[in-house]
């Protein structure tokens, strides 16, 4: 255990952990909302996120050109990348709902069957990205799209495009990108939380989460509500993907898996179905993981997260804040 390193760097470790945690929280939102409404683990949500990272990457690649970009131009490009990421993720999420889940929901299939469909969909989405060179090759497009499709199974990077300086806060050097990630994620969480609490659609989501049949009888369109849930989850995964690319700068076709499991752990940690729980769970998981990695070695980073998940499920299966998208579910 490296206690010296840990205590000397505690503030930075915490802030970086919070930045990771904020990303987990945004992804967790998608898991938690879908689970709250459908009691379904949307296993393929990780791929929704992964498509967002590629949307960000490709937008940045396409617009920065060879000379790179700076100043207002860069800000514009990044904003556009954010929008593209959100749109892409939302589209994938809606597609997923339509193709892999709706036929099952209609039939009231057992939850395990829905989960198996979700796993299948997750693999299809990841593999399509991992085989994009082959797929485009069939249409003879692989040369035109070379930069975007070659090396389909290795890391693709946008490093060097955005260089953000460190700032000193109370004498502690902090990465601006971390602050940006945390700030943006918090803002998004507040927006979603308020939306679900106050808007008519949000009420519909909460009502459906409590009792789908009664909600339907009261005039809430369940199909539309479920779509909305996937849409919001997708948009937030898109934001998470954009922030992830700002911070990590590298993505790959299977990047979603680990992040997905961790985000799900975050959702469970906070209490699945509970929006604020997702935030709390995400931040806690991010910090715990970063601290754990500093203490016992970075190679154990993922193990820390998994062990935490197992421990939480054992001792507090309803999570820290309890499970509630509607109010309390039996």
């Amino acid at each position: 255990m490296d206690f010296d390193f840990f205590f000397n760097n505690l503030p930075q470790l915490t802030i970086t952990g919070l930045a990771f945690g904020a990303i987990y929280a945004l992804i967790a939102l998608g898991y938690t909302m879908v689970y709250g409404v459908l009691q379904l683990i949307n296993f393929a949500h990780s791929e929704v996120f992964m498509y967002g990272t590629f949307a960000t990457l490709w937008t940045v690649w396409a617009l920065t050109g060879s000379g790179g970009a700076s100043g207002m131009q860069l800000v514009g490009i990044l904003l556009l990348a954010l929008v593209m990421s959100m749109l892409t993720s939302a589209l994938v999420a809606l597609l997923l709902e339509r193709v892999a889940y709706r036929p099952l929901i209609k039939r009231n299939a057992p939850r395990l069957i829905a989960l198996i469909s979700a796993i299948g969909a997750s693999f299809v989405l990841a593999e399509l990205m991992g085989l994009r060179d082959r797929v485009t090759g069939w249409f003879g497009l692989d040369d035109t799209l070379d930069r975007y499709v070659s090396g389909a199974r290795i890391n693709a990077s946008m490093s060097g495009v955005v260089n953000m300086p460190n700032v000193d806060i109370f004498g502690i050097p902090v990465k601006t990108v971390d602050l940006l990630v945390i700030g943006a994620a918090l803002l998004m969480m507040v927006v979603v939380d308020q939306f679900v609490r106050r808007s008519k659609l949000g009420r519909g989501i909460r009502a459906t989460a409590q009792d789908q049949e009664t909600a339907a009888l009261m005039g809430v369109n369940p199909t539309r509500t479920i779509q909305m849930t996937f849409l919001i989850g997708g948009l937030m995964a898109g934001v998470a993907a954009f922030l992830y690319m700002l911070k990590i700068e590298v993505t790959k076709f299977d990047v979603g898996f680990l992040l997905g499991v961790k985000a799900f752990a975050a959702a469970v940690l906070g209490g699945i179905g509970n929006l604020r729980g997702a935030l709390l769970g995400g931040l806690l998981l991010g910090v715990a993981e970063n601290w754990g990695a500093a203490l016992i070695g970075t190679e154990w980073r993922h193990v820390v997260a998994f062990v935490l998940l197992v421990v939480i499920l054992l001792f507090r299966p309803t999570g820290l804040l309890g499970e509630s998208l509607g109010k309390a579910r039996a």
Binding site: Q39, R111, A265, E299, L309, V310, L313, L314, P317
Partner: peptide
């Protein structure tokens, strides 16, 4: 012993985590 008490779909995720832990432990 501890995990079979949790809900069925949680079990899926816990076992998923377990499989990865075993592999990561072997790697490290």
């Amino acid at each position: 012993t501890p995990t079979l008490r949790v809900r069925g779909d949680y079990l899926a995720i816990v076992t998923l985590g377990f499989g990865e832990i075993i592999r990561l432990v072997a790697v490290n």
